[in-house]
Design a protein around this nucleic acid. Structure first.
Length: 348
DNA sequence: AACCGAAGCAACCGCCCACGA
DNA sequence: ATCGTGGGCGGTTGCTTCGGT
């Protein structure tokens, strides 16, 4: 049926910021008589406002039990946790944070926490690792956060620490998956022996090294469950790529991380050990989804944190790009790849 | 010092639901 | 069963402040 706003027809009702005088009128009236009917309150209190505006002003700002000021770390973590459980049920979340209003929490979420999660590569809606291209930009923050959490514990316990670790691991795995697919698709078509899954496992395990313990097990399980078909059919990165292909992915990323002086035809290898010069101008047609990809993405067992995205990875779109144009564009892939310092050998 | 864009936040808008007549 | 009202909620807007150039 619908309903007209409470202030419709009330010509001349004031809107906008409240003055101290209005605040005093409202507070005095409510403290003396209670708010009663919000619709009638403005007239009774001598305010030229609609009842709804009075209610909002009272509940969000004037109520005596409101706690103002910065959110504490514990409050922050609690909000994130509750949001992961309740979604945008701000009023429900607010009931768990004494002195905080739903509006305040909502604003804090939209202005701080949402960006924070995005920066960490976590989808603020699903609280899972993001699967879009901007994942790249967020990974350093995600990993840093995971690393930081590995240090001093927080008062709210280990739930968020473990979640962050897992999400960081999952995001790293996704990034590797996508990068390898993108590069191998765009690279020379010379077939090569299948890479060893053990090599990738070792690579990922090494990427965990020192930062935090425990999650390597999850990652290994993840890989075993996925049976990533794409890896089993991995073509050579270049004709000069080592037979073991994936063994040198670390060196390959080294090159990507310092590619300021790239020519138009090559991703300069890091020389020596890796020696991978990936020709990327000849962009291959998009690689069709293989059975293993689907299986990997749909495999929700074991608490896998991946979203079930048909696109399968952040890099599906990348496969059809002219990589060098993108990479050499300021603010484009070049910038993104420069942010991928975490992929350098110190980490891998 | 002036300008501009980004960030933060208070307040508004519109939809929805519960409840009573 | 239907309708009107009151109130709550989430989303959005727009003003203010801040920081960078």
């Amino acid at each position: 049926m619908g309903r007209s706003p409470c202030c419709d027809g009330e010509a001349g009702v004031k809107k906008g910021p409240w003055t101290p005088e209005e605040d005093k009128l409202l507070v005095d009236y409510i403290q003396e008589k209670g708010h009663g009917s919000w619709r009638r309150l403005p007239k009774l209190a001598g305010l030229n406002r609609c009842g709804k505006s009075c209610r909002l002003r009272w509940t969000n700002y004037l109520r005596p039990d409101i706690k103002r000021g910065r959110f504490t770390d514990d409050e922050e973590k609690l909000i994130i946790h509750l949001h992961s459980l309740l979604g945008n049920k701000w009023s429900s979340i607010a009931t768990k944070l004494p002195g905080r209003t739903d509006n305040e929490i909502k604003n804090y979420w939209n202005t701080h926490l949402r960006k924070k999660l995005l920066g960490m590569g976590i989808d603020p809606v699903t609280h899972r690792p993001r699967t879009d291209l901007s994942l790249l930009a967020g990974l350093p923050g995600l990993l840093a956060a995971a690393g930081n959490f590995g240090g001093a514990g927080s008062a709210t316990g280990a739930w968020d620490m473990n979640a962050l670790r897992l999400q960081a691991d999952a995001a790293k795995f996704q990034l590797l998956q996508g990068l390898v697919r993108a590069l191998t698709t765009a690279a020379a078509p010379v077939p090569a022996p299948a890479p060893s899954m053990d090599n990738l496992m070792a690579l990922l395990a090494a990427s965990n090294g020192g930062q935090h313990g425990g999650s390597g097990v999850d990652q290994g399980m993840l890989l075993q469950q996925c049976q990533w078909d794409g890896m089993n059919n991995l073509p050579a990165l270049t004709s000069s790529a080592p037979a073991s292909g994936m063994q040198n992915i670390s060196g390959m990323f080294d090159g990507l991380g310092s590619m300021d002086g790239l020519s138009s035809t090559e991703l300069g290898g890091h020389g020596g050990a890796s020696g991978s010069n990936v020709t990327v101008d000849a962009v291959a047609p998009p690689r069709p989804m293989v059975a293993g990809d689907q299986e990997c993405n749909n495999n929700g067992g074991g608490g896998v944190l991946f979203e079930e995205t048909p696109a399968s990875s952040p890099f599906d779109g990348l496969e059809s790009l002219n990589l060098m144009d993108e990479i050499n564009t300021d603010g484009g892939w070049k910038d993104l790849l420069e942010q991928m310092s975490w992929l350098n050998s110190s980490d891998l």
